[in-house]
Amino acid sequence: MNSMPPKYTIERRYNLFRIIRWKRVADHREGTTVGEFRDFEEARKALYDLNGWKYKSKTANDDANTIKK
């Protein structure tokens, strides 16, 4: 199976997360910044939307961060 690389990716630049759109030019790929975010989860949501993927948060349930006694 030959899988294609994603059209959009996230790259970190200092304290920003950039979404890069890739396109094939001749024998290589060129990237263009299409968005910048300070929060990684916001960038991840936008990335999933742009690539047409189904977004699922890393926290499976709302009580995952609470301590149970």
Rank of each mutant, 00 (worst) to 15 (best):
R12F: 03
W53F: 11
N65T: 00
N51P: 05
H28L: 12
Y55N: 07
I67N: 08
G35P: 01
T59P: 00
K7H: 09
F37R: 04
R18C: 03
E42N: 10
K23M: 12
M4I: 03
G52M: 09
R44M: 10
K7P: 05
Y14C: 03
R29C: 08
R24D: 08
V25P: 03
A60M: 11
F40L: 15
K69C: 09
M4Q: 10
V25R: 15
N15I: 09
R12P: 03
K56L: 08
L16M: 05
A64D: 12
V34Y: 04
E30F: 07
M1V: 01
M4Y: 07
T9A: 00
D62H: 12
L47F: 02
M1D: 02
K68D: 01
K58C: 05
F40M: 07
I67L: 09
V25I: 06
S3T: 15
I19Y: 06
L47M: 09
N2A: 03
R13F: 06
Y8V: 05
A64Q: 08
D39H: 13
K56F: 05
D49A: 14
F17D: 00
N65G: 04
K58G: 08
E42S: 13
R24G: 01
L47T: 09
L16S: 06
K56C: 07
W22F: 11
R24Y: 10
D62T: 13
A46E: 15
N15A: 03
T32I: 14
M1K: 04
N65W: 06
L50M: 14
A60F: 11
F17V: 05
P5A: 01
P6M: 06
K23L: 07
S57T: 10
K69P: 13
N2T: 03
A26P: 00
K54N: 10
G31Y: 03
P5C: 00
V34G: 02
D49R: 15
D63Q: 15
E41P: 00
T9P: 08
